[in-house]
Amino acid sequence: MSVFDIISHQLVNGLVLGSFYALVALGYTMIFGVIKLLNFAHGDLYMVGGFLGFLSLSAVASVVGSDWPGIFIAMFLSMIAVGCIGVVIERVAYHPMLAAPRLSILITALAVSLVLQNTVLSLTGGQYTAFKTDLGFGGINLGSLFISYNQMVLVATSGVLMIALHLFVTRTQFGRAMRAVSIDMDMSQLLGINVPVIIAVTFFIGSALAAAAGTMAGAYYGSIWYFMGFLIGLKAFTAAVIGGIGSIPGAMLGGLILGLLEAFGTQIPFIGSEWKDVFSFAVLILVLVLKPTGLLGKSEQERM
C-alpha cells in the first residue's frame, strides 16, 4: 500500500471512530454544562443503548428486516428508552445530591456506572452477544481506497444528529435556556426558566445520543457486551476535555480529533495498535498542559 492509501484508509477509520466518540462526548459535555457533573455512568448508557438497540432490532426485524431501515428504527427506540433511563437516573441518583459537595455526586456517578454494568452482566452472564444484522459488505472504490456503505451511513447519521443538536441549542428557546442554565443557574430561574425541566431535557438528549452511538457501534462491530461502555466512556471524556468541557462544538471536534489520532496512531512505526489507548491519553495530557481549558473552552474571566 502506498502512503496515500494508508492515510486515506485511516482517515475513514478515524472518522467512524471519531463519530462514536463525538456522540458520547456530547452527552458528557452537556451534562457537565448544566450540573457540573462528570457523569462517569455515561459510557454505560452507550452500552445499555447497544443492548436496547439489539432488543429493538430483534423485535422489529421480522417486519422491516435488519438492514439499515431496521437499524434506524431500533436506534430510534433505543434513543427514546435510554433517554428516559437517563432522566430517571438524574432524578433518582443525582438530583438529591445537587446541593452536596461535588465529590459526593462524582462518587454517585461511579455507583450508577457499576449498577448499570452489573445489571447487564447478570442479565447476559457476561457473554458477548452477537448483534446480528443483514448489513452488506458493499461499498465504493476510490482508486485503491475502499469505503463501505456502512461507514458512510454511520458517519452521515452521526453528522445529522450533531447538526440537529446544534440547531436545537442555538436556534430554540429550549436550547437558549440550556445554555443559560449552564452559565448561571440562579439567574436562569429569575428569568422564569424551569431549571429541573432543562436538566431533565439535557439528560434525555445526552443519553439518547449515547444510545444512538451504542446501537450503531453494535451493528457495525457485530457484538455487544456489558463492559463495552467503560473504555469509550473514558475516551469520550478525553474527547470532551480536549475540545473544552462544557462546549458542544468542542465535544464534536474533540471526538473527531481523538478518533483520527487513534487511527493514525496505529500507523506510527514501532508503536503497534495495542498502544493506541496510551496514545490517546497522552494526547489528553498534552492538551491539559498546553491549553488546560481545551481547544474551544473558554477560560473563566473574573470581573474586577
Partner: peptide, 18 residues
C-alpha cells in the same frame, strides 16, 4: 449578571422563557 458567551439578543431572548 448577563450570560457570558451569549450575544445581546440571545441574552434578552432567554428572558422570554416563561
Amino acid at each position: 449578571r448577563l450570560f457570558r458567551e451569549m450575544t445581546v439578543m440571545q441574552n434578552v431572548m432567554s428572558g422570554m422563557h416563561s
